[in-house]
Measured scan of single mutants.
Amino acid sequence: MGMPNRKYADGEVVMGRWPGSVLYYEVQVTSYDDASHLYTVKYKDGTELALKESDIRLQS
């Protein structure tokens, strides 16, 4: 078993793309699913969504 190939840690605050949009919002990573390679993130309004790594970026 190798290390999970994840870029962002639980609790890390990053920018997540809103689905169907080009806009990124501040989100907190809450979990990562090794099987689906999706991150569960929480937006400031409390919305929780699963995002692909390509829809997440570090805060500038």
Rank of each mutant, 00 (worst) to 15 (best):
L58W: 10
N5A: 14
K7A: 07
Q28P: 00
T40I: 12
G2V: 08
V14I: 04
L38T: 12
K7Q: 07
Q28C: 11
A50K: 15
G2Q: 09
G11P: 01
H37V: 03
K7T: 08
Q59Y: 14
M1R: 09
Y32P: 00
S60W: 11
A50C: 14
K52A: 12
V22D: 14
Y8K: 00
G46Q: 04
A50N: 13
Y8I: 03
K44M: 11
T40S: 08
R6G: 03
R6I: 04
T47E: 04
Y8P: 02
G46V: 03
V14Y: 03
A50P: 08
E12D: 12
E48H: 10
P19S: 04
V14A: 05
L49H: 13
Y43P: 01
Y39T: 00
Q28L: 14
Y8N: 01
D33Y: 02
G11D: 04
D34L: 08
K52H: 12
S54G: 10
P19M: 06
L51E: 00
G2I: 08
H37C: 13
G2M: 06
H37K: 14
H37Q: 15
Q28R: 13
K44I: 10
E53R: 02
S31N: 11
T30Q: 13
A9C: 09
G16C: 13
E48W: 07
P4F: 09
I56E: 00
L51M: 09
V29M: 01
D10I: 13
E53C: 04
D33Q: 03
Y32A: 00
A35S: 11
A35W: 10
Y25Q: 09
S36N: 11
T47K: 08
L58E: 14
Q59D: 11
S21W: 03
V27P: 00
Y24H: 04
D45V: 03
L23N: 10
V14L: 06
E53K: 02
M15P: 01
Y32S: 00
S60Q: 12
G2A: 07
G16S: 06
K7V: 09
T30N: 07
G2E: 14
E48T: 14
Y25R: 11
Y39W: 02
E12H: 05
R17L: 08
A35E: 13
Y32T: 00
Y24E: 05
D55V: 02
I56T: 02
T40C: 10
D45Q: 03
G46S: 05
G16K: 01
D33V: 03
Q59P: 15
D45F: 05
D45L: 02
Y43C: 13
K42Y: 07
G2R: 02
A9G: 09
V22K: 13
T47N: 05
K42D: 01
L51T: 02
G11F: 06
E26G: 03
S36Y: 08
E53P: 06
D34V: 09
Y39N: 00
M3G: 15
D33S: 08
K52C: 11
V22Y: 13
K7M: 09
N5Q: 13
S31K: 08
E53A: 06
E53F: 05
M3N: 15
G11C: 07
Q28Y: 10
R57D: 06
S21E: 06
L23G: 09
M3L: 13
V13P: 03
D55T: 02
V14R: 01
Y32M: 01
E26A: 10
D33E: 04
A35I: 14
D55G: 03
D33G: 02
D33R: 02
K42L: 12
M15H: 07
D45S: 05
H37L: 12
V22C: 15
I56R: 01
A35H: 11
S60N: 12
N5R: 04
E26T: 11
Y24P: 01
W18K: 11
Q28H: 07
L49A: 09
Y43T: 14
V22G: 13
I56A: 01
Q59I: 14
T47C: 10
E26C: 12
E12P: 01
Y25V: 14
L23Y: 12
T30E: 10
P4C: 13
Y39D: 00
G20K: 05
R57C: 12
V14Q: 01
M3D: 13
K44C: 11
V13S: 06
V29Q: 00
S54I: 09
M15N: 04
K42V: 13
R57F: 11
D55E: 10
A35Y: 12
V41M: 02
I56D: 01
E48C: 12
K52G: 09
L23D: 11
D55Y: 05
G46F: 04
A9K: 12
Y8T: 01
T47M: 07
R17I: 06
S21A: 07
D45N: 10
Y43Q: 07
R17H: 03
M1G: 15
H37D: 11
D55I: 01
H37F: 11
T30A: 09
V29N: 00
V22I: 12
S54D: 12
S31I: 02
L58Q: 13
Y43N: 07
D34C: 09
K42A: 07
R17P: 05
P19E: 05
I56M: 11
E12G: 03
Y24A: 02
G46I: 03
V29F: 00
D45P: 01
S31H: 11
I56F: 03
T40R: 11
T30I: 15
G20R: 05
L49C: 09
V41R: 00
I56V: 04
Y24I: 02
H37R: 13
V29G: 00
M3I: 13
P19Q: 05
R6Y: 03
S60V: 12
Y32K: 01
G11N: 06
Q28T: 15
L49I: 13
T40P: 00
L38N: 06
Y24G: 01
A35R: 12
Y25P: 01
G16D: 00
H37W: 07
L38W: 07
G20A: 05
G11L: 05
R17S: 03
K44D: 06
V29T: 01
M15Q: 08
W18F: 11
R17K: 10
A50Q: 15
V41L: 05
E48F: 14
E48L: 14
G2H: 08
E53S: 05
K44V: 09
Y24V: 02
M1L: 12
S36Q: 10
V14N: 00
Y39A: 00
K44A: 11
G20T: 04
E53Q: 06
K7E: 04
Q28F: 08
M3P: 15
G2S: 06
K7R: 08
G46P: 01
N5E: 14
K42N: 04
